[in-house]
Design a protein around this nucleic acid. Sequence first.
DNA 1: CGAGGAAGTTAACGAACGCTAACCGCGGTA
DNA 2: TACCGCGGTTAGCGTTCGTTAACTTCCTCG
Lengths: 192, 192
Amino acid sequence: MPFAEQTAPPTRREQILAAAAELFARHGFHGVGINDIGAAVGISGPALYRHFRSKDAVLGEMLTSISELLLAGAQSRVRDAVDPEESIRALIGWQVDFALANPALITVQERDLGNLADADRQRVRALQRRYVEVWVTTIRRSRPEVGEPAARAAAHALFGLINSTPHSAHLDRGQMTDLLAAMAYAAVHSLT
Amino acid sequence: MPFAEQTAPPTRREQILAAAAELFARHGFHGVGINDIGAAVGISGPALYRHFRSKDAVLGEMLTSISELLLAGAQSRVRDAVDPEESIRALIGWQVDFALANPALITVQERDLGNLADADRQRVRALQRRYVEVWVTTIRRSRPEVGEPAARAAAHALFGLINSTPHSAHLDRGQMTDLLAAMAYAAVHSLT
DNA sequence: CGAGGAAGTTAACGAACGCTAACCGCGGTA
DNA sequence: TACCGCGGTTAGCGTTCGTTAACTTCCTCG
């Protein structure tokens, strides 16, 4: 098949990041050793330092890249929407898809943000602030009577709702997508 | 004043549990040392072992007691409700009040469950299962057309929504209570 | 008044962990 | 062919951490 898109095999860095995400999600950053991460990708211990400057750097790259990805996705979806209502639906859909596709990353992001090195934490916090801002302005565009603090609190509540994914795998993915999106959409429309 | 209800001063154990909850919430179980906990209550280091068998025991008692408290509160509120609809409102109110009153405990429970000693983890898991079950049966009583797996997923989503509290302190408590309850209630009613 | 236990202290041990050092095999290129 | 850098290994270092030991202080009760 001449034109088959052959997806490039994952580089070692990517393998390590994926394995570390899974481990961090299960045991927490401080609960996982460098040896555990190495073992999870078939190398052992300090070989990790051929690919990352430190253990903190693994977490740093993990969280910055997902924050950037989330923000970029949100911005592009809002840009493509034709009215505020569709923007909200698009944002919800984006967050739901992302959370269902990357439960480990979602878990780590909200659990181990405090374990980032200072510089990384500032970067991630800034990206997250901008992500929240996209939601807040979108919500307020569609419901101008909602105050900004309320919109911000509502956005966080929606993240909590949608990111609850890792704690429940009882439905298949399609049904879960529909259920979370419907609940989130209804919750937004409850705002006064 | 003869009949003044003098609230008993907190015992050392309680002080330690409260301080540890705050620290665990901020830095994670493994990110907090025995010395940090001691310092937070004005004693230093190993004095902790006069009150707890181990550091794990601190987390264990913390999470079992809140799980029991949550379950008992939910059961009593459902018992006092006259119809399924009111039961749901009561459960939502209970969880919202609890989350707003104990943000640190909420954070620790969903973050450090995996760091419990095996026996404690089993106990806490069992209590949490029963708590979820109260929600699931209540939801299904009020909306019989919702399947059990969907109800379970919805319950987890509602917990995520309501427990988002620690991540946003932008509203005063009364407004936050109303906002979360309204969003949760609307989300439940979106279930098919 | 004297004994004893509850609650605290500091010192020290042993294990685990992050990281570095020193060394090795191998594939590609001058 | 000789070389060199990339990615891996094991050994070991320094630190931190949970826990125990040994000792002190003080309040209470017989």
